[in-house]
């Protein structure tokens, strides 16, 4: 009890770590309180896949070919299951709307006053949120993948697995910065829910959540020799769902794989910068006009 006032003051880094740890604990507690919701919610998210699988099974039964755009029926099932996994990394439920809300109701002010960087705070919160999510979601995910293991091809080599894991990590960052930037539009528009919805739409279509992007390889764009799939490969969206799944299934290999990882990393940087700029300009605008 002696020590006095100048006892141990944790240095900044440690303080940050401690804050983060507290955040992690609190969000884990929160999640456990609503555990019923959570397990049910996670399992339910697999339901649309069930319909998709049946739809594709029916499609395959009506055609005589063994594959569609290079995917066998089993590949299709494995693909949808894998996009569930990649979306568990890249999707940021409620991030954009909560940022926009905090701008609208003025609670963002506290980050203008407190010595905390808003974007870092959000990122840390998301990491905590995701870690907690994985800690609990590993059970339903594990069960579904185990049950469906027959649909998967034999596991790929170590390099592919490494690329797969790297793409997952990048997809988390990409998803985060895209959604956060979107939320910061709240500084300029009162109502961002429609914009968010529009984004979700494009995202749903072009991320590969709906179908493998390879299906678009046969769709012409009007430019000679350039298919719609080629265009989509240059956009950020497919890196939040399609890409990692395709890597695992061996659809992207060699130089193309390295090249694609490069595009993904470049998008992460672009979106991170966009997010920063939006925050800077947004807060400047905010303090100029008052909340």
């Amino acid at each position: 009890m002696s020590g006095g006032f100048e006892a141990i003051r944790p240095p900044g880094q440690l303080q940050g770590l401690r804050t983060w740890w507290t955040m992690l604990k609190i969000s884990l507690e929160e999640r456990l309180v609503y555990r019923g919701d959570f397990v049910l919610g996670t399992l339910m998210r697999f339901l649309p896949i069930v319909t998709q699988v049946f739809l594709w099974t029916a499609v395959f039964s009506a055609t005589n070919r063994g594959d569609i755009a290079g995917y066998s029926r089993n590949d299709i099932v494995a693909y949808y299951l894998l996009t569930m996994l990649t979306r568990a990394f890249s999707s940021m439920p409620g991030l954009a709307t909560s940022i926009a809300r905090s701008v609208r109701d003025g609670s963002v002010k506290k980050f203008l006053i407190q010595p905390v960087d808003y974007v870092s705070f959000l990122l840390a919160a998301r990491v905590a949120h995701k870690l907690v999510y994985y800690a609990v979601a590993v059970v339903p995910f594990g069960a579904v993948f185990l049950l469906c293991r027959g649909y998967f091809p034999p596991p790929p080599d170590a390099t592919t697995i490494a690329a797969f894991l790297l793409s997952l990590a990048l997809s988390f960052l990409l998803g985060f910065f895209m959604e956060a930037t979107l939320g910061m539009l709240g500084f300029w528009f009162m109502e961002v829910s429609s914009i968010v919805f529009g984004y979700m739409l494009v995202q749903y279509l072009l991320s590969g959540h709906m179908f493998p992007i390879d299906l678009l390889a046969g769709v012409p764009t009007g430019l000679a020799g350039v298919s719609l799939a080629d265009v989509v490969h240059w956009l950020p969206f497919e890196y939040t769902a399609y890409f990692s799944a395709a890597v695992w299934l061996g659809k992207v290999q060699g130089a193309q794989l390295a090249w694609s990882l490069g595009i993904e990393a470049a998008w992460v940087v672009v979106m991170a910068v966009a997010c920063r700029v939006a925050w800077r300009r947004g807060t400047r605008r905010y303090s100029a006009f008052g909340g």
Binding site: K25, L28, E29, L32, V33, R35
Partner: peptide, 13 residues
């Protein structure tokens, strides 16, 4: 009762 603390939350499961 909504227990406080991580351990208690786990127990509440």
């Amino acid at each position: 009762d909504k227990p406080e603390g991580l351990a208690a939350s786990v127990r509440a499961l």
